[in-house]
Design a protein around this nucleic acid. Structure first.
Length: 269
DNA sequence: ATGGCGTATGGAATACGA
């Protein structure tokens, strides 16, 4: 059982409102582990019973009222649960747990990185400063021993790092999520930590790849003005076991959708 | 046309997302 793991990461933009399509995802994809972001739900109100009924008995939940919030739901046992308060502002933006795999375990980090507001200038926009500080703290905290062992880092990282991670590189260079200051720091975080971009191992860099499409487009699919904001990173020791990644684009068109699509990653011995 | 919408809070209008 634990020689094979199917994992999904998904920013669902309110877990309570989105339970019908979370259940649709469970039926269609049958993941072993589900990492959610933007649950927007205090822990006391988290729909634990619905997940338990669906077979996800193991939960690492880090939520708060109104905003943010992450949760990792699993059919496999979760241990050593850790919730880190990045930038010490009391936000629920990270939860980690060990998942059994291949006679050992994988350290699984689930992140919701700050969006960063509108202006890509920290002198006039504190939210942008917070986003950069958050990533700098990730860099310092995650480098070193963390990725000498099997580890996965997933979530809504709110940065589209490469040219073909956005619909128009040129038009988005000054738009928060694709500015050089963000994409360069993002790459520093990934490289310093020894992480591999698993999604780009399976989709070449010259091919468009998105996980998010704005609610505001009249026809999101026809316009296709997407960005790759959600990511799956793996440590070097785990790299040989990554069998594939898929963006479930269809889910963006489901009933009452999130503006993010789920990303599926499969691991096997 | 990168905000044209959607969500939470609270019970209307505002904050926030990206």
């Amino acid at each position: 059982m634990t020689d094979r793991i199917k994992l999904v990461t998904w920013n669902i933009n309110s877990v309570r409102l989105r339970m019908p399509i979370v259940e649709q995802l469970i039926e269609e994809v049958a993941p072993d582990v589900i990492c959610l972001q933007e649950t927007k739900c205090p822990d006391a109100n988290f729909p634990e019973n619905a997940f338990r009924k669906a077979g996800y008995e193991h939960m690492a939940i880090h939520g708060q009222k109104g905003y943010h919030g992450v949760a990792t739901l699993s059919k496999l046992p979760l241990s050593n649960i850790e919730k880190r308060d990045f930038c010490q502002v009391g936000d629920s933006r990270h939860v980690a747990a060990d998942v059994p795999f291949n006679g050992s375990s994988i350290r699984l980090h689930n992140f919701y990185v700050p969006a960063g507001g509108d202006e890509p200038d920290r002198t006039i926009n504190p939210k942008f400063g917070h986003k950069l500080d958050f990533m700098a703290e990730m860099l310092g905290w995650l480098k070193g021993e963390e990725t000498s062992k099997p580890a996965i880092l997933v979530g809504d990282l709110n940065v589209a790092p490469y040219e073909h991670d956005v619909w128009s590189h040129k038009k988005l260079l000054k738009v928060v999520s694709h500015t050089p200051v963000e994409t360069e720091l993002f790459e520093q975080v990934r490289e310093a930590g020894g992480w591999l971009d698993a999604m780009r191992q399976f989709t070449p860099l010259d091919e468009k790849l998105y996980t998010w499409w704005s609610y505001r487009a009249k026809d999101w699919s026809a316009a296709d003005k997407g960005r790759r904001l959600d990511h799956v990173w793996v440590s070097q020791p785990l790299a040989p076991y990554v069998k594939g990644t898929t963006v479930l684009r269809d889910a963006r068109g489901w009933e009452k959708p999130s503006d993010h699509a789920p990303v599926i990653a499969e691991f096997a011995i």
